[in-house]
Design a protein around this nucleic acid. Structure first.
Lengths: 190, 190
DNA sequence: ACCTGAACACCGTTCAAGT
DNA sequence: ACCTGAACACCGTTCAAGT
């Protein structure tokens, strides 16, 4: 009855986002994405050369496009919020980034903000990368624990979760403040 | 001719380390480990409940046991060296750690060294975790790029690799110094 | 205590062929 | 330009049965 499915990169990525939201990264298989679109798995390979390329497009969607809040702290927090907004967001972005398949829009703002503290250009790049590694590493860890808590026996009392989440956020802020203090210390040396 | 294979956790982990060294994490399958030991895959499940548990034992081997160098910088460098000594070491350790299946011996020394700078106990924990996230995140990124460079077309000129590796190490040191400066700055505030 | 053999329910990727 | 259908070479995990 329906006309045969006609998709493009955009609709494929949108389907992948839906599968990710429902099944997480372990459930984000090419077959499940194809099922979501009511097409054969092999059809996906017309749109993307392989799964990593598709995941890179998903990553780009997760980290969003240009308008970034100003300042190292706000930019770092914005990245963290984007990652937290999607199941296993940090892990997906981490691997796309490591494979060099993803440009992180927030990095430019981190470099800009670091320079404003008075460090030289090379140090600003280092500061940006250090912050990115911290935010992704911290959030990855956090999301994995969340996943383990869900998969593991549902023994954790429900009312401990919000309290734990608050602590996690506080620890994130404390570590972030430490790194920013380090950047500023590097600036005042010169 | 041979007596039937009789293994324990130790020999299984040793076999896994050999498979990892030769094939990397993507090639570290239960079947390949079983082949290395000349046993059936199912036999591995007598020794470990699942693959993640086996990977946690591999991770423990990678990060080594107790004697750690003193000082935040030396301890962080020691962790990095351990990760770099094994293919995909950072990725394996990262996931075991996130799943709460691995104790990092170096963390205790990082906490101890942080306290020596004069920060309070809570800040010392935050400092240790921040450093751990940085080291693992940085090294993960580095090892993935290395892998991508090998898999990708062998177009990169060979003489650029040592130079690039040196730059990577320098950037690691610069970021490390920044975080440590941040810890010391936190200490001098109080 | 440790292993075999067979099965189940999946994977990513390729390729000729269709419209 | 986009999709089907079928195949290839794999996965992790379970389970009854053997010694």
């Amino acid at each position: 009855m329906n006309a045969p499915a006609r998709n493009d990169k955009e609709t494929v990525v949108a389907a992948a986002m839906r599968v990710l939201a429902e099944n997480g990264l372990p459930g984000l298989s090419m077959r499940r994405i194809a099922d979501e679109l009511d097409i054969q798995v092999s059809a996906l390979y017309w749109h993307f050369p392989n799964k990593q390329a598709l995941l890179a497009a998903v990553s780009a969607q997760i980290v969003g496009s240009d308008p970034q809040p100003e300042g190292m702290d706000a930019a770092a927090r914005a990245l963290r919020d984007r990652l937290l907004a999607h199941q296993d967001g940090a892990e997906i972005v981490s691997s796309s980034l490591a494979l060099g398949l993803l440009d992180l829009p927030v990095r430019a703002e981190l470099v800009r903000a670091a320079k404003k503290t008075g460090v030289d250009a090379a140090s600003a790049e280092v500061a940006a990368d250090t912050l990115v590694h911290y935010v992704i590493g911290y959030t990855f860890h956090e999301q994995q624990r969340l996943h383990a808590a869900i998969v593991g026996t549902a023994e954790a009392s429900v009312d401990l979760v919000p309290a734990g989440a608050q602590d996690r956020g506080d620890d994130f802020e404390a570590g972030l403040a430490m790194i920013i203090a380090g950047v500023q210390a590097s600036a005042s040396i010169r």
